[in-house]
Design a protein around this nucleic acid. Structure first.
Lengths: 217, 217
DNA sequence: ACATGAATACATGCATGCTATCACAGATAC
DNA sequence: GTATCTGTGATAGCATGCATGTATTCATGT
């Protein structure tokens, strides 16, 4: 499996992606302090781009910044996760509902591809790839809604919820991953242009994702 | 009327608020370039806090940043505004629906106060105050939902839509402002704990707000 | 007149150093 | 023992300078 290198245009972008990577791959503990200098030294850059990356992560709710005090990794409570999923449900349901009425053939194919990749990543137990592809599935749907603003918000909340992986293990039930089956169902509903069905399945899918957060990390 | 000074903890925060003020009070044209140095000189600070403020505004969709090139004020198309309002409708409807089931007496009073202030600001034709109070009405409801994440997203989209004031004149119909009447209706529905009614009124209210964007600036 | 390309002016991205503020430990008072 | 004060170290906020990339202008050729 060839891991394509992360692409970035600026140092700040690099730091952002790298930090996000470290969070998702459980290299950091929720609530831990994130001093600018430490990160700067570790990544071989100055504090400036680190500051920028931290603020971006803060806008996604992954990092908490206290003025004049510093940044620390978020440590969402069970309640906060539920709240986040409540919002995500709203955004994604409207997103998939609209997408069903206007998704292009090309995006339907991209959706199928993404499900295939997802299965592969799951078999290989490649956590990072799995999350990335999983996220991509939802991203394609949001894009297909044709509402740019909506897509932007979905993107933001995907970043939040994906970080919650720190709290659970998506490979816990070794042979069983209903999530992929759900994605297949949603993709099918979109092919059929069945808006109601797509929304219903998406809602169920997200309820399940939330309950997954109970699986041991 | 005593205009309380804007409060801020850091220079970056000051620049952020000041820029936002200038946008809302129509001192800047949509699409105009926003060079860091210009702003820095104008506000008597260095480029660093200006950069930070610009990125924050970008996360609210008010400013467009092109890497290595610069920032410019957003110039949303009619389509983008509609898209934004579609998202806002989703977020605010769920927000007011939940709020109706659990809003505190204290917040009900704050809501009433905010409507009164709104009427006063409208009579005085005080644009900035009017917008601030208007925004506050929606903010109180979002807070009352008890969902912090939802409140955060509502806050963000309020910032976006309020900036659209650049494109229209809320005092265009001199004697008539149905928006305030709507707010009264929503506040009443909340008092009655009538969730359905509150959602319905909020939806109508936002549809109207969107159509208001046709009024000449 | 128009397109192409080089030169120049300009703006951003980043590194670095200084200053103001905060967090924490130890001391002091009660 | 608890609470409050105080000093010291650590950390973020900001200013500044340099390097890099972008936009604009103007010359050149067709």
């Amino acid at each position: 499996m060839i891991m394509e290198p992360r692409l970035y245009t600026t140092s700040a972008d690099y730091v952002y992606q790298e930090l996000r990577h470290q969070i998702v791959t459980k290299q950091m503990k929720p609530g831990q302090r994130l001093p600018e200098v430490n990160i700067a030294v570790q990544m071989g850059v100055s504090r400036t781009p680190v500051r920028e990356a931290l603020r971006r992560l803060a806008s996604e709710g992954l990092v908490l910044i206290i003025p004049n005090s510093g940044a620390r990794l978020a440590s969402p409570t069970r309640r906060e996760m539920e709240d986040t999923y409540a919002v995500r449900e709203q955004l994604e349901c409207i997103s998939v509902g609209i997408a069903a009425t206007r998704i292009s053939e090309r995006n339907l194919r991209r959706l199928d591809d993404s499900v295939l990749e997802e299965e592969k990543a799951f078999e290989e137990k490649n956590l990072e790839l799995y999350l990335e592809v999983n996220e991509n599935f939802h991203r394609i749907i949001a894009e297909s809604s044709g509402n740019r603003v909506l897509a932007e918000y979905v993107e933001n909340i995907l970043a939040r919820t994906n970080a919650y992986v720190v709290f659970y293990d998506p490979f816990y039930d070794i042979d069983d991953n209903p999530s992929i089956a759900h994605h297949k169902g949603i993709a099918l509903a979109l092919k059929e242009k069945n808006s109601e069905k797509a929304v219903k399945l998406m809602r169920e899918h997200l309820k399940l994702s939330l309950s997954d957060l109970n699986k041991p990390a």
